[in-house]
Nucleic acid binder design. Structure first.
Lengths: 155, 155
DNA sequence: ACCTAATTGATACACATTATCAGTGTTGAT
DNA sequence: ATCAACACTGATAATGTGTATCAATTAGGT
């Protein structure tokens, strides 16, 4: 674990604990353990991956509690569920402004980005008479690191 | 059923049969029945909804065949699977150009639309070093008909 | 009519997620 | 510190969606 990971993790951990506090939820040892694991995930993860890592820390923690925590974190907006090509992915997401996700199809890493003109979507649907409520934009591509490995260096 | 529905349905039915023909698939009674039901759906539907309607026409047709047909139709691009807020939706979709879907959160009706500048998404992710492969944009809002009923006429 | 391979329905299976429920632990009031 | 209320827990069952299997049926060219 690099110092960057640690710093990011502790910030994330703090934010998540505050979010649970804000909902009047209790501090428990299983929850603390699960939060630490979530904070240590460096990329989107499946519920199964999370459950396995949690079990590595404390085998007594059950699947149900993992899903319950994911639901709580999604409710406070700190975790989002993305539609991956091979099922659902959960991702820790601290950016509070409107944003979108790009998932690397090679390594699975996810980054966030914003559109220059996000209202273009609202305008497009208004043209056919709809009033937009919300939208989900999910992008798949190849990240900078994986491009180096997979793309010909000649061009 | 209005004449519009009928006309749309028969066009859709025809396109779907041609698509199956093009793949060298056989004409069978269960398939014909299922295609007619799909063509008659006026909006996105869940696999379960389709299964129920098909069973209403012919109770002998099994769940597996419904899923198999959906897979065939998705393979030929005439049916798409959308990520709804409450699970997956299938929608009959005859538009062949690149497009997106808006789903009305009141009545469930779906329409298609295009962005003025679709490459804006590719540019946005290129700015952070990614090479885009594909993207999914799913919009939720209120359709013109439902706006009339739900929005105050005063404004 | 006949043959072969596609298609079928029933069934079992796999997987992610949610519901249930009795026991346990946290927390705030005292 | 004690206590009682109730949030939280893990185990388990249940749900829901989609896929795999397989023997029996059937389409469609010959």
């Amino acid at each position: 674990m690099t110092s960057e990971d640690t710093a990011f993790g502790s910030v994330a951990l703090d934010l998540m604990e505050r979010a649970l506090d804000a909902q009047g939820l209790r501090h428990t040892l299983p929850r603390r353990t699960m939060l630490e694991v979530v904070a240590g995930m460096g990329r989107p993860f499946t519920a199964t991956e999370l459950t396995e890592r949690v079990a590595g820390r404390d085998p007594h923690i059950g699947r149900a509690s993992v899903f319950r925590l994911l639901q709580l974190l999604r409710g406070s907006g700190l975790v989002e569920r993305l539609h991956g090509p091979d099922g659902e992915l959960y991702t820790l997401c601290l950016a509070r402004e409107h944003h979108h996700h790009v998932t690397c199809t090679v390594c699975g890493q996810t980054a966030t980005f914003s559109l220059e003109d996000d209202r273009a979507v609202a305008r497009a649907v208004e043209r056919i008479g709809f009033r937009m409520e919300h939208h989900v934009l999910q992008v798949f591509g190849v990240c900078p690191a994986c491009r180096e490995h997979t793309e010909e260096p000649s061009r």
